[in-house]
């Protein structure tokens, strides 16, 4: 097993770790879009997907493909996502604000069944 092979496997391991973390962030963002109570908070959940999730997956694919033209193209896609995602997020938020969609600003904490006392649960 030469040094090049060891280096290759190290790169693959970093790639697997990065893409797994990226998938976790993307899925968490998607679940957050379902769970959050109102539009403005859903926007934050979608932001998790757009920034770190996307960049981690692009990084993992770049490590897999090695030093070719494909890597440069992947970096270009990552840069494009990095530059356009805040602009479109701000555009959506600003449109909602200008349309006078009111954000919900009080504390949001739906009651969990486990929070109730044992006496209440009996009744």
């Amino acid at each position: 097993m030469s040094a090049m092979e060891v280096w290759h496997y190290i790169l693959l391991a970093i790639s697997v770790a990065s893409m797994t973390a990226g998938l976790v962030f993307v899925l968490a963002g998607a679940i957050g879009v379902i769970r959050m109570p109102d539009f403005y908070t859903r926007m934050h959940a979608a932001g998790v997907t757009d920034t770190l999730g996307a960049e981690l997956i692009v990084l993992g694919l770049m490590l897999q493909s090695g030093l070719t033209l494909t890597t440069v193209k992947l970096a270009l896609v990552g840069l494009l996502l990095f530059l356009t995602s805040p602009t479109s997020t701000h555009a959506i938020a600003n449109a909602a604000h200008k349309a006078k969609l009111k954000p919900q600003l009080k504390r949001h904490r739906p009651e969990h069944p486990a929070d109730r006392g044992p006496e209440e649960r009996k009744s």
Partner: peptide, 22 residues
């Protein structure tokens, strides 16, 4: 961004949603 992502992830994935938007 890394630090903020992890804190938002913690807020989203809590079993009971407990947020206070501002």
């Amino acid at each position: 961004i890394l630090a903020a992502n992890i804190s938002v992830l913690k807020l989203i994935m809590r079993p009971d949603v407990d947020i206070e938007p501002r």
